[in-house]
């Protein structure tokens, strides 16, 4: 590594691992949620890039920003970032990311559901909060919402507290916080899943299979125009 690169990179620190869990979806499918490795980012990026073209439910802005965040993690330009992926039979159905700002404070970045209608995003967001509070042992997680769906899911369902004095890394919009108390109040109704993941499920989740772009766009838009074939 060059001297300049050493200067440009944040200090390296391994975050505590997020132990994989699995969730039975409404469809009966088993979704494994596990931590993605930095070297798996190139597998994730094409699907995230495809969603930057979806002008629906804020997929475009969320995907564009997530792309930059994941690339920043891959290229060592963001400190203490992580990504959790949701996989059904190894196929990517969603991802969440964030970072550890300090031992006390976590920062939630984004949540993307690549399959809709099965509450994949809700499960993944809950896993992200579980990681910050129970595994990083942080006191608070700073959160913003970029879509009405996100606002409804996070701010309302978790009863988040406003943090107007906090400048969240995603911009100058209103910041909110999930405190440990709020998390444990919400846990019974919002955070689910079983550990350990059975070997056969974990085996399938070892390698991330991205979704074909046309399938992905169809999954997230459900546009009636597609009937024209």
């Amino acid at each position: 590594m060059s001297q300049l690169e050493e200067i440009l990179r944040p200090p390296e620190k391994d975050l505590p691992p997020y132990p994989a869990k699995y969730i039975v979806l409404a469809s009966g499918e088993r979704m494994v949620i596990r931590q993605a490795r930095r070297e798996e980012v190139p597998i994730l990026l094409p699907d995230v890039a495809a969603l930057t073209t979806v002008d629906r439910d804020y997929y475009d802005i969320v995907a564009a920003r997530t792309y930059a965040e994941l690339l920043g993690w891959l290229r060592h330009r963001v400190r203490d970032e992580y990504c959790l992926v949701g996989l059904v039979d190894g196929v990517l159905v969603g991802l969440v990311n964030g970072r550890s700002l300090s031992p006390r404070i976590g920062v939630s970045y984004h949540t993307i559901a690549m399959r809709r209608g099965l509450r994949v995003g809700a499960h993944l967001f809950a896993a992200k909060m579980e990681y910050h509070i129970e595994y990083l042992n942080q006191q608070e997680v700073y959160i913003v919402a970029e879509s009405p769906i996100g606002f409804r899911r996070w701010m309302i369902e978790y009863g988040l507290e406003k943090r107007p004095q906090v400048h969240h890394e995603l911009g100058g919009v209103m910041s909110w916080a999930l405190t440990r108390d709020l998390y444990f109040e919400a846990k019974d109704r919002l955070v689910v899943g079983e550990r350990p993941v059975p070997d056969d499920l974990m085996e399938k989740a070892k390698v991330i299979t991205p979704v074909e772009e046309d399938v992905l766009i169809k999954q997230v838009t459900a546009r009636i125009r597609q009937a024209e074939g």
Partner: peptide, 14 residues
Amino acid sequence: TMEGLLHRPEAVVN
């Protein structure tokens, strides 16, 4: 499925 809709603990979120 019935399992995912009602019978698993996950149903509370699903």
